[in-house]
Design a protein around this nucleic acid. Structure first.
Lengths: 233, 233
DNA sequence: CAGTGGTCTAGACCACGAT
DNA sequence: TCGTGGTCTAGACCACTGG
């Protein structure tokens, strides 16, 4: 009843636990592992995909397979600050702004804002890293006329803080939707994985004290890099 | 830049949207689809796996591929009642009890209960169906001495209601942890999918008014059968 | 029992990363 | 440029499902 997957798992765990490989270090090449295990590359890759699903390893486009570190814990029911949460958990967070532009938004966006088709929005796209590993791509949409001058500010930090400090807007309510979704090329690229790979898609609608929608936010997380905590009473 | 995946997706979407195939109906056999598309079975299966990731189709062990219905919306931050929520969304929910036994619990369980190694628990395992499709396996652990006689009750409904009606215990607080996890055979079997398939694992710690842990609950959901809503202020 | 999906072999070519 | 991962071909055998 032992499958070749079990062999692969055992083998990789040995490589890791022998102390030879620490978190974020690269595994041997697929062809070499397949040789060591006497299986075909396709079988080996099936196994690695499963190990990825267990959070043991992760991949990067055409660079190889790496030992996965501990999961990052996020709390979607909080006005999270990515940077401080990451540091609390012993990660070194960084952010790269992929793009910023003004646009007439897609239907799902302007209808969420309860606005009409011709209304203008800022779109901001960013990648978030933990210890140099890209783990999330984020798309934010904010009404353009309300936040004029936004592009002049430092956009690598927390949007919540920018809104507070520069526009005196406080987010006090959120509605999140969480689902598994495949990545389009536009998001898969910055994450360094192939298009079509699975992700955890978190859509946040963030409201101010007047119950007005302020920030329409979509996050695509590597599904095995994180776990979520939600507490309620 | 068109990949064979795009062809497969287009082809399957045509089959569905042509009205020939409604929700929960079976697709043609893999070999037949591969023939129609002039690709190998392994390539076709890669494509179907991706379509599954997009929530378009789902599989059942050695039975075939089916057209996926709409996602079921769950709210982990609520004392959910699976049956009534499902009916609200137009599904026909059913439940099967897989097993019920008294045991000395695993370490993660008795330590969550802040109890010692020799304490006894009831373990209840159930499968939940929506329109005959298995979508979730649930494992509940409850302290045995507090809920004696539990096995004599009807266990196919809501645990929350049983606790209320028969033991006058009210759940007023919950802590959830949500993560992607691969399925062990014990859970994959009842869901009709192969071991190692991905799932969304929701662990709930459910407390009464005295902040005592009452119910230690683990749910394994088909990741593409559901989406989650979380609201906060 | 026939046909299906699940798993595996043994190759191949291409595009991109590192150097 | 060389080696890597990403993708694909063309088969095979087994375990299980369904009639």
């Amino acid at each position: 009843m032992s499958s070749s997957y079990d062999d692969i798992k055992t083998h990789v765990q040995l490589l890791i636990s022998n102390g030879r490989l620490a978190a974020n270090q690269k595994l041997p090449a697929e062809r070499e592992l397949a040789e060591q295990l006497q299986v075909t590359r396709i079988t080996l890759r099936d196994g690695l995909n499963r190990l990825e699903g267990e959070g043991l390893v992760y991949r990067q486009n055409r660079r190889g397979w790496f030992v996965a570190p501990n999961r990052f814990v996020i709390n979607p029911a909080q006005k999270v600050n990515f940077n401080s949460m990451a540091r609390q958990q012993g990660f070194k967070p960084t952010t790269k702004v992929l793009g910023f532009r003004k646009l007439t938004a897609r239907r799902d966006i302007y209808s969420a804002f309860n606005a009409n088709k011709s209304s203008k929005y800022f779109e901001m796209r960013r990648v978030r890293y933990l210890d140099q590993r890209a783990v999330m791509v984020e798309e934010s949409y904010l009404p353009a006329e309300r936040f004029s001058g936004l592009s002049d500010l430092d956009l690598s930090g927390s949007v919540t803080e920018i809104l507070q400090d520069s526009y005196a807007v406080n987010i006090i309510q959120e509605r999140c939707n969480i689902q598994g979704a495949n990545l389009e090329l536009l998001c898969a690229g910055p994450l360094g994985i192939p298009a079509g790979a699975p992700s955890l898609k978190i859509t946040r609608l963030r409201f101010d004290s007047g119950e007005h929608l302020i920030d329409y936010n979509i996050e695509y997380w590597l599904p095995h890099a994180i776990e979520m905590e939600v507490a309620t009473r």
